[in-house]
Every structure is written in C-alpha cells, then in structure tokens.
Design a protein around this nucleic acid. Structure first.
Lengths: 127, 127
DNA sequence: AAAACTGTAACAAATTTTATTACAATAAAT
DNA sequence: ATTTATTGTAATAAAATTTGTTACAGTTTT
C-alpha cells in the first residue's frame, strides 16, 4: 500500500525504487522485489534504463484495495498451518481442511469489505 | 482452534497438554503456553496435579469463533509494520496511521463474520 | 561512451517462531 | 505419608523466516 500510494500521488511521474525505498525506509532491492510482484499482478508497469522507474498500470480509481490484498497476500493469511497434525486423531486428521474452509469464508468477507474502497480513496487520506 | 475443538469434543473430560500435543503434533510446552493464554481470556479452565488438564470454561455453543480470534490474535493481523517510514515524506509520515485505520475497518468486518458461528458449529464438522 | 536505472541471484544478518530441558508447585492415588 | 502424574513457567537452543546487502548483467537516455 505504501508503494502504491506513492505511485498514486506521483501523477504520472516514474518513481525509482531508490525514491520509494527512501520513503518506506527499507532497501531498494526489497522495493524492486515487491514491485516485480505488483507488476505480475497487473497493478504497476516499470521501465528499465536511465529515467526508469514505475508507474501505476491503471488509474487509482480502478484499483480496489481488495486487488492489492489479493496481489500481496502470501497463501492463507489467517494462520499458516506449519505443523502436521496426527492423522490417527479424528480432529487432527481433518483440522487443516476444516480450518482452510473457515479461513476461506472469513477471507471472502474481508475481501468484500476491502472491495468497497479504492487506492484513490486511500491515497486521498494523505495531505 | 485445534485445542478448543479437542476440548469441545472431550465432553467434560480433563485433557492433558500431552494428549493435545499428540494430536497437534507439537511440543506439550507450547500447548501449555497457548492454554495459558486461552485461560487468561476466559475460554478454558485448568487444574494442576495428578489427573489434571484443561476443560472449556463454558459450553461450546457460547464460544463464538470471533472470541477465539480475539483471544489468539497478536497485535494487528493484517501486516505488522516493522519499519519506520521516513517522517519527511508526506506519505511516510502518515502511512502507519492510515494503514492502522484501514486494518481496523477490515478486522471489524472479519470479526463480525466470525461472530456468526460458534466453536460448537465448528467442532460438529468433525466425524 | 557514460550515466542512471531495473531485474535478479547469491549470500548474510536479524528476527521470530518453535522446540527442548528443567524443575518447582500441586493434587490425586496408593 | 509417599509416590505419581500433571501444570506453570523460565531459560535456553534450534529452526525457519524475514529483511538486508552486495554484486552485476541488462536496458535506455543523455
């Protein structure tokens, strides 16, 4: 959201990973990695070379916050089952599947809520 | 949820941390730590000594899934801001506050959804 | 040709999570 | 009473994940 907000407020200027990293206060390589992901999800475009940088791929009014969530989430966001429960226990045997079901329902409610507002709405909250 | 589901299906029997750990397939000390948290949140009661263990503090019909979420979440669940953005950037200066606002709204929608079902509903999904 | 960028890989450091060991305190069973 | 089984908790260790760094080839403008 930080990256995208900067891009939304850049008004067509190509922002460099260095500039963005300076605002977030992290390493530019991490910014480039995340931008790579946002690009793969159709939210930004980038150009290489001198005067390169990134730009929103479409108007901020057309990017829902849920699109950002979907692009940036990594697997299940509510609890990542890192353990392998006991298959000989009736609960252990099914718990991961049942939790996945529960999480999916919960996520759908969340996504619906996040679909109510756009990147433009969000970025207008800043001075 | 795994711990609570086992307790819900135990029908008044005191389950030991060893038994629960065997179902989850983790170390019993981790179970005792989480039970300590659930106890502090009024969801389970425990007793020490021989034949000790834990029990639900109230009927599973009276425990909403949102109660479990609220008891077990650690801080903000959507993105934990571990970085300190640049205070000299208009976006950096405000981003954490604005994200907190966004997350809070989103969480409220999630909590409302999770309030629709109870631990009893969840545990009945198991054989 | 030089300068300013991106893209990406390889590696290192820091942080967080998970596991283990240990043991005092407690309560039931014998 | 003593033994046994259990919780509660601290201290420490190991493993996994996240974050940061360095390096450099490739790209595009000047």
């Amino acid at each position: 959201m930080h990256i995208l907000t900067l891009l939304a407020k850049a008004n067509g200027e190509w922002l460099t990973s260095d500039f963005i990293a300076g605002s977030i206060n992290i390493n530019p390589v991490l910014v480039r990695k995340e931008i790579s992901n946002l690009r793969n999800n159709g939210l930004v475009i980038s150009r290489e070379g001198k005067n390169g940088g990134s730009l929103l791929a479409k108007p901020a009014q057309q990017i829902r916050v849920s699109d950002v969530f979907l692009a940036t989430r990594q697997g299940a966001f509510l609890g990542t089952a890192r353990n392998t429960p006991n298959p000989d226990c009736p609960v252990g045997k099914q718990i991961n599947q049942q939790l996945d079901n529960l999480y999916e329902e919960a996520e759908n409610a969340l996504i619906q809520k996040l679909g109510d507002s756009t990147l433009d709405d969000f970025s207008q909250r800043f001075d």
